[in-house]
Structures are given as C-alpha cells and as structure tokens.
Simulated scan of single mutants.
Amino acid sequence: MKIIYSIIISSLLVFQTVGFTQEDSSKTSDEWKWRWEDEDKWDWKRSWDDDFDFGFSKSRPAISLNYGLAQMDRKDVIGDFVKPNLLELKLGYIKERQAFGKDDLVLLTYRNVYVANESNKLAGNKTNGLEIESEMWRVGFERNRGYGYKLGENSSIILFNGYTLNWSRVDFKYPSPDLETLNLYDENFRFGTSGFGGISFKVIDNLMLDASYESAIIFQRHLFWKWAGSAIIESAAQGLLDKFIDEIFESSHYAGPVVSFVLKNALTYGVYELRKDKMNWPFKSESPLTYDQFKFGLTFVF
C-alpha cells in the first residue's frame, strides 16, 4: 500500500507539471484574457485572501472545544500503549464566504492556535502494569479549509481538510524493555505535524458541531532540511491537486466540495502512512511516534 501511495504522489507531480506546460503553450491571447476576467469562476480572490492576508481580514473570532479518542504507536516499541483520551481548546479566526460565485456554495477557512491534553487518565483505563501509560501536553498552530453547502440562511455543512505544526511534551510510565526508545521523548518538548479531515455542521450563525479524524506524528529529532524537503514535496502535491479540484469546480460546481474532501484527505492520509516508516519520507530517517485521533466538539463563532 505504501508503494502505491508513493507512485500516486510521484505521478501527480510529474503529470500535472507536464499538463501545465502543454496547457500554457496552447493558450491564445483570447483564452488568457478570459481566464483573468472570469474572477468568480477561478476564485482568484479566494486564493489572494487565503495566501496573503493570513486569513484575518473580515474574519470572526472563534473558540473550539473538542473531546476525543486516540491511539498511540511506534513501530519499534515492544509494549502496548494504553489508549488515551483528549481534551482540546482552540482560539482563532473563521472566515466564511461564497465560493465560485454560487450563493449556495461556501468556502470556510479557520486558523487558530490550540492546546491539548491527552492522557489515559482521561479515559479511565485500568492497566495491568505491562502497558505503557502516557500523559501529553501539546501546543500548536492549525489551518483548515473546506468547501460546503448552505442549508439555510444561517446554516451550512462544511467538508474540510487541514494541517498543524505543533510541539508536544510526553510523560511516559513504561516497562524497562522500552526504556531506550521512549527516553527519546520522555519529558521533553518535541516537534511534530499532523493532517486531518472532517465535517462541520453550522447549526446557527454562532454555533458549529465538528467531527474530525487526525493523524499526527512526533519527531524524535527535528532534522530541519529533511523535514523541509518532505514538507515541500507534500505541499507541491497538494497544490497540484488544488488545481485539478478547481477544474472540477469549473465543470461541476456542486460535486466540487465532495471531490475536494475525498482527494485532499486521501493524499494527506497517504503521506502520513508513508511517514510511519520514515518520519521525513522519502529521505532516510527513523520511525516517529504516531497518534491516530477521532475528535468531536463545538465551535463558538462571535
């Protein structure tokens, strides 16, 4: 499966690049004029707002509270991890606007800072003395973005994808066989990343119900250049996929949110699966500590 993901990502980079070259060479002056003038169809304003004003203009303050279930893992750890539960608080800004010139299509962006606590104590799980217990505090920055459908004047459903950059401090209680590996993390702040996808249901203008699945990794060491190279490859693949999704919106506006949700999250999860073996895939690196998390909660918009 991981070989398949690698082939898909590589093919996406190659074929989209070739497609850009062929498309550019075949443009007439009239076609270029049409592209620039048709702002709503290609949603240039959306791209400018998202990429260059950091999402804060015409945004509304928001607070999110989440509760969730998690599963920890690392390939070379002998013992079993006790499954922790989590509590999470987010403070940020939400911006919602019409998408692609359609009154009943919505584009939502949410940028925030967050703090989370994950612990088997929150789950109330009893251990047999052989399992690995943990408590973790995490702080980070999150960006999520998604398309959806208006259901009424003040209600909508949003299908989103996003990522985080974060720092985690884990306190382990573990049997001696795993001492050397887990000491790489124990009671130290470690850099990490995550990708996630989910659904938000806007009930009224000031309240949203959220459900999401997040895949996170914690690096035992932050090797900047390898991490940066891996991140650039993922960002390039996501960017090329965005262009393909924009073309789907052009052809079929109302299929766009669902197609975007499926493709963006499939790519995010595929990259995460590849990084389970090599934390800085495709570069040679160690396995990371991983978290799979299902979260649900409330977002209050002011």
Rank of each mutant, 00 (worst) to 15 (best):
P257M: 05
N280K: 00
E153S: 09
T164P: 01
F81D: 01
V203T: 09
R138T: 07
R143I: 13
E247R: 15
T17V: 08
K45N: 14
G152Q: 08
S251I: 06
R74I: 01
K102Y: 13
K295A: 03
Y67Q: 06
T164V: 08
Q98H: 11
I8L: 14
G140Y: 02
K33T: 11
S260A: 15
I204H: 10
L89P: 02
G92M: 04
Y272K: 01
E273T: 00
Q98K: 15
Q71F: 11
G256P: 06
E37N: 13
F52G: 05
I204T: 12
S156P: 00
E142N: 15
Y291K: 07
A237F: 02
A116E: 03
V170F: 10
N66V: 07
L240R: 05
I199T: 07
E250T: 04
R111H: 13
L241Q: 08
V18S: 08
V259E: 01
V106W: 03
L151F: 08
K276A: 03
L89M: 08
G129R: 12
W281D: 00
A231R: 02
F283Y: 15
S251V: 09
L91H: 10
K83C: 06
F261Y: 10
G140P: 02
R138I: 06
G195P: 03
D50P: 03
T181P: 00
D210E: 13
E135K: 09
F52Y: 15
D73I: 06
E131S: 08
K95A: 08
L298T: 09
V262T: 12
W225T: 05
L159G: 04
L12C: 04
T28H: 10
I4D: 09
D80V: 10
D205S: 14
I204C: 10
D186L: 01
L209K: 04
Q220S: 07
L179V: 10
S215V: 02
N166Y: 02
G195L: 00
K202H: 08
L241M: 15
D51L: 15
S6D: 05
F244M: 14
D171V: 05
T127E: 10
S212L: 07
G68A: 07
I78M: 11
